[in-house]
Nucleic acid binder design. Structure first.
Length: 113
DNA sequence: ACTCTGACTATTT
DNA sequence: CAAATAGCCAGAG
């Protein structure tokens, strides 16, 4: 499909986000890279912003490259995103994922799931 | 058609 | 090590 429309871009982001295993997290850049737009990490976050109303997108499993819950301000409540991550076994402290590299999941390497 | 903004990232100061 | 800068692309007004 050498004609990736913008709508497909969003769908692809959701598809990858859904593939994130429970208790795992990934970064916008990693998803963007898999989508073939490593320089469009912002677009991934933008797509996440539009994930509301879509299927069950585990947006709380998507954080920035340092494991910081940059999108927690977009979740209802104040620390829902952190609570969700901790609920899945991800250690979070001060809006940041502890041992981020340990919980990190590369969508390109986890495709064998 | 133009401008502004945004859940990012890498580089430089 | 922290803050500032630039590059990126798509959606909304």
């Amino acid at each position: 499909m050498p004609a990736p429309s913008t709508e497909n871009f969003f769908e692809r982001v959701y598809e990858v986000a859904r593939r994130i295993p429970c208790g795992r997290v990934t970064s916008y850049g990693a998803i963007a890279k898999v989508l073939g737009a490593a320089r469009s990490a912002r677009m991934v976050g933008w797509a996440m912003n539009a994930c509301h109303g879509r299927e069950d997108i585990p947006a709380h499993r998507v954080v920035n490259r340092v494991g910081l819950l940059s999108g927690k301000h977009h979740f209802p409540g104040t620390n829902l995103m952190q609570q969700l991550l901790e609920n899945e076994g991800v250690e979070v402290e001060d809006n940041k994922i502890v041992y981020f590299q340990k919980h990190f999941w590369d969508p390109a390497s986890g495709c064998e799931l």
